[in-house]
């Protein structure tokens, strides 16, 4: 049977993608940002850790979805997805290959579990999905695993509550564990941490709050589940709300988790860059 073997979270700052694509990762500005991913890059390629499939939770930044269609939870079910042209041409990264059988299985299972997923076939994937892949896998000719895109609306209010995200993670876990193929499946939650990209409060960073969020993924996920949107907005900036997506990852790991690795760096462009690797504890 398929199993959830680990959860990874990471910010998905577009400038990180640009730094990788333009060969700037050795520049002074970027060295400390990328250094915190060295551990994960090595860990993830060891045979016992390497995922067969990653369920990659991210938000579309007005690339696949415009103002005509705003799905709260959309799961990509086509065989492959191309990198999106976000206004400066598509990123030069590999095509994203899906595990479509598992994706359709998750869609069906979650709908029966009362999560009314939107199923999407034709979709280009933007930096929200491709930047975490670059951070974890570098610049290979092909991504080393299958990837199921799961897009969450965190742009138009209200986005889903943290609790709803956590519970979707649990439903995804049940779906994965009822899939007959032997697969190592990771769930990645992306976006955040504190950042604000607008107005006179732009540039807001809250290290203390971010640190507590990272701590409580292990120590007190119940606090995070109950956190209202207004707290994210006040404490982590208007774009910090992306952190609800990390709770889908956390919900998919079961009650107890062990923290394997963490990285936090200010600033990557406008954003507090956060990264964590968690493992379920039976």
């Amino acid at each position: 049977m398929a199993q959830i073997t680990a959860g990874i979270s990471s910010s998905h700052v577009p400038a990180i993608g640009a730094a990788v694509d333009l060969g700037k990762t050795e520049e002074d500005y970027w060295v400390p940002a990328f250094a915190g991913f060295d551990w994960t890059k090595e860990w993830i390629m060891k045979p016992e850790n390497k995922p067969d499939v990653v369920i990659l939770v991210y938000n579309d930044h007005a690339s696949a979805f415009d103002m005509n269609l705003i799905p709260t939870f959309a799961i990509g079910c086509a065989d492959e997805f191309q990198p999106a042209d976000e206004g400066w041409g598509p990123r030069p990264v590999p095509t994203v290959k899906n595990h479509a059988d598992l994706a359709w299985h998750i869609a069906q299972s979650c709908i029966l579990d009362e999560f009314d997923m939107t199923i999407i076939n034709k979709m280009d994937v933007d930096h929200g999905l491709t930047v975490p892949l670059s951070l974890m896998f570098g610049q290979p000719d092909a991504w080393p695993c299958k990837i199921i895109p799961l897009a969450v609306n965190v742009v138009t209010y209200p986005p889903p509550s943290g609790n709803r995200c956590y519970n979707l993670g649990r439903a995804i876990r049940d779906a994965v564990e009822s899939f007959p193929e032997d697969l190592k499946v990771q769930v990645w939650g992306t976006g955040g941490m504190s950042h604000q990209l607008q107005g006179t409060r732009a540039g807001l960073i809250n290290k203390e709050w971010d640190t507590a969020f990272l701590d409580d993924l292990t120590k007190d996920p119940e606090r995070l589940r109950k956190m209202p949107h207004i707290e994210y907005l006040r404490e982590a900036g208007s774009e910090g709300i992306e952190l609800v997506m990390w709770l889908i990852m956390r919900g998919a790991l079961g009650d107890k988790v062990k923290e394997l690795h963490r990285h936090y760096h200010v600033a990557a462009s406008n954003t507090a860059l956060g990264h964590i690797v968690l493992e379920p504890v039976e």
């Binding site: 604000q196 409060r201 807001l204 960073i205 290290k207 006040r234 200010v266 600033a267 462009s269």
Partner: peptide
Amino acid sequence: MMLSGGRSPEGLRS
């Protein structure tokens, strides 16, 4: 400002 830790939320929450 971003390189020296970003904008503090102090006084800017409410």
